[in-house]
Amino acid sequence: MASGALAKPPMRGLLAKRLRFHIVGAVIVALGAATFYRFGVAEQRKKAYADFYRSYDSMKDFEEMRKAGIFQSTK
């Protein structure tokens, strides 16, 4: 009859072992997401802004908006 009994599961230190595993995994996923955001989104956005403002003429844009009648205080 003893041969059919199940072995007791190891309970001592189980929470610490599982937390260690999950914390390491969470840190790796967070660093991966931060790296993806930095190079996939932030750097591309900064480059797009730099490209836009390299050839942007604010006075020309203002004159176009003024002629279109967007501003009420200027004629």
Rank of each mutant, 00 (worst) to 15 (best):
R20L: 09
A7W: 08
Y56R: 05
A50P: 12
A2C: 02
F36W: 11
R20S: 06
E64T: 09
I70P: 00
G32L: 04
K67W: 02
Q44H: 13
K75L: 00
F52C: 06
S58R: 09
M11G: 07
D51R: 13
M1S: 09
A26N: 06
V41K: 07
L19S: 00
G69T: 10
D61M: 04
D51A: 09
Y53W: 03
I28N: 01
R45H: 11
G4P: 03
A16G: 11
F62I: 02
V27A: 09
R66M: 08
I23V: 14
R12K: 15
R12V: 14
G4Q: 14
F36P: 01
M59Q: 10
G40I: 01
K67Y: 04
V27P: 02
R66W: 01
S3R: 07
R38I: 13
V27N: 05
Q72F: 09
Y56D: 02
K46C: 10
D57N: 15
M65K: 12
F21Y: 13
G25R: 08
Q44L: 13
Y53T: 04
A7M: 10
K46Q: 15
Y49C: 05
Y37E: 08
A34N: 08
G32K: 01
R45W: 00
K75I: 05
A68M: 07
A50S: 15
S55W: 10
Y56H: 05
A48G: 06
A34M: 14
T74L: 04
Q72G: 05
G69L: 03
S55N: 04
Y56T: 02
G69V: 08
